[in-house]
Design a protein around this nucleic acid. Structure first.
Length: 306
DNA sequence: CAGTGTCAAGGTGGA
DNA sequence: TCCACCTTGACACTG
């Protein structure tokens, strides 16, 4: 079990997702920004290793406008050495990486131009992970997309479009249950049709349930991950008490997390804590998981584990 | 220089 | 048909 947090570290005083306005794009500006972002990503990964946080989501803003037509600077070549070194650090220390393009990636759109932009965005994410030379356990997570008044047809479109994606995307793409449209059961059906692994979002499943208990949900989504994919990834957060639907809590609810661990039994998975205070909650979660006996340092882990 | 409006990209649902 | 909302941080403009 690896535990981590997404994109932003609030302790070390730098951001790996610095960006700028499209209107002020220049190759020079892009190169300067990417250089700073990679330097910060390195600092974050070193912080994470020292803190036993072995799961991390890399921000989609690592290369600003990376999928936009204006972005013509050959960033992969310019920073090939930096990417290689970062990837080696990740691999050498047994870290797990994910990326999560935001809501604009809609594979099942009706408008072919939206699909085109979505594929370009996915290709950009795959390029980042490929530049790091990470294997197929490094994933890109997306939601199913829109409903457009006919969920069945929308799901069929997802499956059809999925089959046409490049291999560089297919080997990394996973689908996640969302908080209002596509449930875990929907994602599992799409898996049956396409073979795509299902990333289980615990919070979304409580807000937009499809009947499975937590243990069953983890077991069934876990079974959709084959050996090159690595073990199940889970997004974990809890609702803001009294807050509006969809809001995340300020910090980890320790009892809630401990209960999640105990209810999911011995199942192994990597857990991403989507909590506002980021690494602070992830650190608390490591402590709880260690107490539960689920988390061990890398050197304590069985070296032959797949 | 602090405060704040706005930012590449979409979908949904209420008015 | 139009607009606010979804969620979030931070750029970049305003005064």
């Amino acid at each position: 079990m690896k535990i981590g947090y997404p994109c932003i570290n609030r302790s070390i005083g730098c951001s790996s997702g610095r960006t700028f306005r499209l209107a002020s794009y220049s190759d020079e500006r892009l190169i300067t920004t990417v250089r700073e972002n990679l330097r910060c990503l390195d600092a974050i990964l070193r912080f994470n290793l020292a803190s036993d946080l072995l799961f991390f989501r890399i921000t989609s803003d690592l290369v600003p406008f990376g999928s936009h037509p204006v972005c013509t600077a050959p960033w992969e070549e310019i920073f090939a050495g930096e990417f290689m070194a970062l990837g080696r650090f990740i691999t050498d220390h047994g870290m797990r990486i994910s990326m999560h393009p935001d809501q604009f990636v809609i594979i099942n759109a009706k408008d072919p131009e939206i699909i085109g932009r979505s594929v370009a965005e996915l290709r950009y994410h795959a390029r980042v992970l490929d530049a790091l030379h990470l294997d197929a356990t490094a994933k890109i997570q997306i939601h199913v997309g829109g409903v457009y008044g006919d969920k069945e047809a929308a799901m069929e479109r997802f499956c059809r479009e999925y089959a046409h994606l490049d291999e560089s995307i297919l080997r990394r793409l996973v689908v996640e249950n969302d908080d209002s449209r596509y449930t875990l059961a929907d994602c599992l059906r799409i898996h049956d049709e396409t073979g795509i692994p299902v990333l289980f979002d615990f919070f979304h499943h409580t807000v937009n349930p499809s009947g499975e208990g937590v243990a069953e949900a983890v077991e069934r989504s876990g079974a959709t991950w084959r050996s090159p994919d690595g073990i199940l990834m889970v997004d974990y957060s809890t609702a803001m008490p009294g807050g509006r639907r969809g809001r995340h809590t300020e910090s980890l609810d320790a009892a809630d997390f401990a209960e999640f661990l105990s209810r999911t039994g011995p199942a192994d998975m990597d857990i991403m804590l989507e909590i506002k205070d980021k690494e602070k909650s992830a650190l608390a979660a490591v402590g709880i998981a260690r107490h539960d006996g689920r988390f061990r340092r890398p050197e304590e882990q069985d070296p032959v584990r797949a």
